[in-house]
């Protein structure tokens, strides 16, 4: 009886290993950038003290106690429509004249100590053309409480796939 039990236990183990191998090989066909592929975050000129990490922002948004910042997505509309941080507003690409104008108009009348978080997630951090101009614009207008969400790879990898809150729509 003991040897029969052992045989079945070995069979179980083989099943689990085979499933694991299948799972890993299926993932291998999805080529996702690795951390080693990252360019250093210093490539962006946004001061590191002004960055906020995804987990920190997500925790703040979930907390009933903390005051919610004003959130602006400054990437591209198709990304925003598919998935964005709940409550965030879309402003056209921060690197475009339209984006700069829309952001300026939206914040013009706000108190300069208003908590604002900018995010994009269009591409890997060091390649993102949108966050730095938008941050500079707000900084230049005298806003003192602006943070930029640090998205290392893209919005899908660093926010959606991490299970942080998202909503879809215009």
């Amino acid at each position: 009886m003991k040897s029969q039990f052992r045989r079945i236990a070995i069979l179980d183990l083989i099943c689990c290993v085979l499933m694991g191998v299948t799972s890993v090989s299926a993932q291998a066909t999805m080529r996702v950038p690795k951390d080693g592929d990252l360019h250093p975050a210093s490539a962006s000129d946004v001061p590191s003290g002004q960055l906020i990490q995804p987990e920190e922002l997500a925790a703040g948004l979930r907390s009933a106690k903390s005051a919610k910042p004003l959130l602006f997505q400054i990437g591209f509309r198709v990304l925003y429509v598919q998935a964005h941080i709940p409550g965030s507003e879309y402003v056209a690409a921060g690197s475009s004249p339209t984006g700069a104008q829309q952001l300026r108009e939206r914040v013009e009348k706000l108190p300069r100590d208003k908590a604002i978080v900018l995010y994009c997630g269009c591409c890997p951090w060091s390649h993102c053309p949108n966050v730095q101009p938008a941050y500079e614009l707000l900084h230049g207008m005298g806003f003192t409480n602006v943070k930029v969400l640090f998205i290392a790879h893209d919005f899908g990898a660093d926010w959606v796939n991490k299970g942080y809150p998202v909503e879809a729509g215009q």
Binding site: F76, G156, A157
Partner: peptide
């Protein structure tokens, strides 16, 4: 030029390229 509907059908294009 594509839209969000097409992006969704391709599994979601949540970063470029």
């Amino acid at each position: 030029v594509g839209d969000a509907g097409l992006a969704r059908r391709y599994g979601g294009i949540l970063g470029l390229p």
